[in-house]
């Protein structure tokens, strides 16, 4: 696990279960994610990987079990989830840029509204983040005027504007045309090398192999296997992992 084990636990999940009505999507998930770690989650569709990710910032209500983020027990009703979410950025498959605002306003809305920064600070910070993802020249564009890859880079910048110390990625390249996948992965790679704690649901096996510190394979609501990218991709042990990798590689 690439030397992250000794570090602080950023996200602690124990015996997490999630039902949608009668359907059990997550059956019993326990895992610790450490500071600076890049964790990649793979698995067939319907395996619960996106649901698991969405439980980490409570976009999905948890049925039972405990999720602790940065010391805050978010499964406890008394915890102010909004405060925790400020420190946990999320990037969505379908970008979800605010359609009624230009790029700059997308980036400054939350910091200004939540009084994290003055308008000027937020603007300067937003421009810096846009520079980071190479989207500075589109600051006045509306989301509808951007390509998929551009939208996703703006979405990453938007999340970064809150200065999160954890970033969640929910299939960030799945809705992109193939030629735009690279530019988004490039930005994510940069983030990883800056030491960001990242949890990524993806089908990009090549990216996982290169960037992940640890890979978990999920199926049927369980974590079936976990290990370094080398262990999982080159030497998988569980039959279901082998079967899945045979299909996608």
């Amino acid at each position: 696990m690439a030397g992250h084990e000794g570090k602080n636990v950023k996200i602690h999940v124990s015996h997490l279960k999630k039902n949608f009505d009668k359907l059990e999507v997550l059956k019993d998930i326990s895992i610790d994610i450490h500071e600076g770690e890049v964790l990649v989650i793979i698995g067939p569709s319907g395996s619960g990987k996106s649901t698991f990710l969405r439980c980490l910032n409570l976009l999905e209500e948890v049925t039972s079990g405990e999720v602790v983020v940065d010391g805050a027990v978010i499964t406890d009703k008394k915890t102010d989830i909004n405060k925790v979410r400020e420190r946990v950025g999320m990037v969505f498959q379908h970008f979800n840029l605010f359609q009624n605002m230009n790029v700059l306003r997308n980036l400054t809305l939350a910091p200004v509204d939540l009084k994290k920064a003055s308008k000027e600070q937020a603007r300067d910070n937003a421009l810096e983040m846009l520079r980071k993802v190479g989207m500075e020249d589109k600051k006045d564009a509306y989301p509808a005027q951007l390509s998929g890859g551009q939208k996703q880079r703006v979405a990453i910048a938007r999340a970064l504007c809150m200065h999160p110390d954890i970033m969640l990625f929910d299939e960030p390249t799945s809705a992109l045309d193939p030629e735009m996948v690279g530019e988004v992965l490039q930005v994510m790679k940069q983030l990883a090398s800056d030491g960001m704690t990242m949890v990524i649901v993806t089908h990009e096996i090549g990216f996982a192999r290169e960037v992940a510190d640890r890979v978990i394979f999920m199926d049927g609501g369980y974590i079936i296997e976990e290990g370094t990218p080398k262990e999982i991709f080159s030497n998988p042990k569980e039959p279901r992992t082998i079967d899945f990798l045979n299909k996608v590689l």
Binding site: E86, N96, L97, F98, N100, A110, L114
Partner: peptide, 27 residues
């Protein structure tokens, strides 16, 4: 309005009504 708009706003830490007022209602 796409549910993703509300989710994105909430994921940034905006409370429900604030997200409604700033993001969902204008659309």
């Amino acid at each position: 309005v796409d549910i993703g708009q509300m989710e994105a706003a909430r994921s940034l830490g905006l409370p429900y009504w604030r997200a409604m007022q700033r993001v969902v209602l204008p659309q």
